[in-house]
Each structure stands twice: as structure tokens, then as C-alpha cells.
Write a protein that binds this DNA or RNA. Structure first.
Lengths: 123, 123
DNA sequence: GCAGTCATACGATAAGCGTCGTACTACGGT
DNA sequence: ACCGTAGTACGACGCTTATCGTATGACTGC
């Protein structure tokens, strides 16, 4: 049986991950987190796959350490949620929190990103 | 009679200001431009005063050079439009261009900023 | 237990950014 | 013609960031 993630939510062990409380999320920081092509790509991928995604499921033209870095930025600024599931780490957008704080913002950014992607090389 | 701004739109004189074409505006850059508390404040002020605003009409707790810097960032990333009117420089949001490129984005950001401002110290 | 895989940590590096002060330029009024 | 005001240019400073490579840690499967 794999690790029981139910009873081990955010333990203080070596594999704990800090997420900001909803009330601590700041607009400028969210925008900053989104203001990077690589991270925008990550967020788009996470939004597309409504469920959770493994880090490696998103192909990025950067090294693994850089990838980790971007995921951390997104997490620390409250854009995504990460949790360990065995050997992998699952990532998901914090849609509910963001919607509650800044209604429509994320969807606006995602729509804008999709539009621009279509306008440019249909990435 | 003051300078005839009608016949002198974007002259190549010493006081010309470069604005990116609408097609050259990039989402990541717009987000980056907005991802700063000071600039967010500027944009909010410009949005509130629907018309045009003098640089000095917005009180900012930074030096004059820093102020110039922020305005330039906003202009070069396509968020605002600046033009000289005599000794002053008028600033306005590029609402139409942004709306055309990223419909709903700016309004979403502005609403989010207003919400957060209300939530925090009612700035 | 051991090896493989996924991801982190850490250090390094180079670039970028926000801030400032001072010196300079352009315009308008007196 | 002068001076004051509004804004820019430039250089400097310290901090943050994006990137990498390598070494390390955690879990799975053999």
C-alpha cells in the first residue's frame, strides 16, 4: 500500500511544503509570479489539466533545478498548491483561493495567455 | 495660445516618446509592469481619473527619478500612453489596446487591486 | 539492501530591478 | 532675457532573479 496521504497532510517532516495562507496572498506577488513566460506556461498547463500534474509532465526548456525554482515561486506566492504523493509531487492551481481573493483574475490571465498564444505561433 | 498638440502628435524631436505597437505588447511584460505596488498604484490612479493625469498628480512615496522610471516601465510595456503637453506630461491607460489584446484583463486586475486595498488598510 | 527516478538544496553567476542623488534639458511666464 | 518648474539622463548601490551544475535526499521496485 502506498503512503497514506490522508493521515499525512502537511507533516512537519522533511517533505513538508509551505504554502501561504489565503489571507497572506498579495496581488502584486501573484502578478509577479505570473509575469514570467515559463511560469505562465506552467500555470496554463495546470489549468488545462484540471486535476493534478506531475512536475515532469510539463515540458519546459530549462534544467530541472530551474523548474523546481519556478514551481517554488508559484507556490510561495500562492498561485499553486504542491503536495507529495509518493515519489512524485503533484501540483494544482489554487483556483478557489484565488477566485475568492481576486475574482476573475486568473481566468482573465489564462484567457489572455491563450489568446496571445493563438496570435503568435499557435504554441 | 498653447502648443498646438493637434499638428504635433509624436514628433521626432527631442521630446518624442516611444510606445510599442499594439501587436508588440506581450502579456508577460504587461503582468510584469503591473507586478509592482508602486506601478499598481499609478495604474489605479490613472484608471480612476478617466482622462489624463499629470505625473505629479499621483502622490508617490518615492523620488522623482524613481517615479519617472516607473512611468517609463509602464509605457514601454504598453500599459500607458504618455505625451507632452507643454511642460507637463500627460498619462493615460491604453485601455482600448489592452482590451483588444487581453479582454477583461485590466479590469480584472483593477478590481482585484480595489478588493485587496479594501481588505487591507482601506488605502 | 541496491539501484533508479524524481525532486530538492546549495553554491555560483550573470543579469535585472528599484531606489536614490545630482546634473541637465525643455518649456512657459514674467 | 531670465528664472522657475516638470521631467529626463546617468551613474551608483544593494537586492532580487533566472539560470545552471553538482551533490543530496526520498521513495519504488527489483
Amino acid at each position: 500500500m502506498p503512503t497514506d496521504t490522508t493521515s499525512a497532510r502537511a507533516p512537519s517532516g522533511p517533505r513538508s511544503l509551505e504554502h501561504p495562507d489565503r489571507a497572506d496572498i498579495r496581488l502584486a506577488e501573484v502578478l509577479h509570479a505570473l509575469a514570467d513566460p515559463m511560469r505562465l506556461r506552467i500555470v496554463r498547463a495546470l489549468a488545462a489539466a484540471e486535476g493534478e500534474l506531475n512536475c515532469a509532465d510539463i515540458e519546459l526548456p530549462v534544467s530541472k533545478s530551474t523548474c523546481t525554482h519556478h514551481f517554488r515561486v508559484l507556490r510561495e506566492h500562492g498561485v499553486i498548491r504542491q503536495l507529495y504523493r509518493g515519489t512524485a509531487k503533484m501540483n494544482g492551481l489554487r483556483r478557489e483561493d484565488l477566485e475568492e481573493l481576486f475574482p476573475g483574475l486568473i481566468d482573465g490571465v489564462l484567457r489572455a495567455a491563450a489568446l496571445q498564444a493563438g496570435r503568435l505561433g499557435e504554441e
